[in-house]
Amino acid sequence: MVEQSDTGLSRRGLMAVGAASAAVASAPGATAAPAQDAPSLATVTLEVNGHKQTLHLDTRTTLLDALREHLKLTGTKKGCDHGQCGACTVIVEGRRINACLTLAVMHEGDAITTIEGLGTPERLHPLQAAFVRHDGYQCGYCTPGQICSAKAMLDEIKAGVPSHVTADLSDKPKLTEAELRERMSGNICRCGAYSNIVEAIAEVAGGLAQGDRT
């Protein structure tokens, strides 16, 4: 059942209209739109989940909107749209980033992995299976971002990237609970499923190392 609003448009439809109108509207309150406020269009080719995709879009389009509204890859979620919640986390050239705080046109030729590229309902990624097994969510809205973030976070630990809670900067970091929680702090879960998220990620990583909780 799709939720209907008073105007008869679905919420999803309204959001799509909102995104589309952003592409044609000029400055709010502008009386006659001067030519310099006209939208500027650009072409960009992204490699999304292994497939080359060429898009013609407004330069204002974020990578998040390009994925969701242009490519219909709606697994990546829009939470705050300001880099504060992590729901839009995707992996670009091997690194996790907030897709809401980067423009699609800045990613010409970049390899982008979204949750759709990690696993499918038939063949879950080990992190997806672990989130299901450990009940690492309630509403599930933050989950794609949590999983993309966790995947890249484990790679960061393997690469030796330190964190705020790494006791000795000259040591190779270990996946303690304190490390896991600190490194995942850019992904907010308003349902508060954190303890189960920790268990799910820890299981895929082969268990937690012992360490102080700081």
């Binding site: 986390t89 690194r95 980033i97 705080l101 890249a152 330190p162 705020h164 900067l169 702090s185 850019g186």
Partner: peptide, 19 residues
């Protein structure tokens, strides 16, 4: 320059520091 590493790691999130 460990104070620089520490300051950077105290800021923002993993995602933001990557950009």
């Amino acid at each position: 320059y460990p104070v620089l590493s520490r300051a950077l790691l105290a800021g923002a999130s993993g995602q933001l520091r990557n950009k």
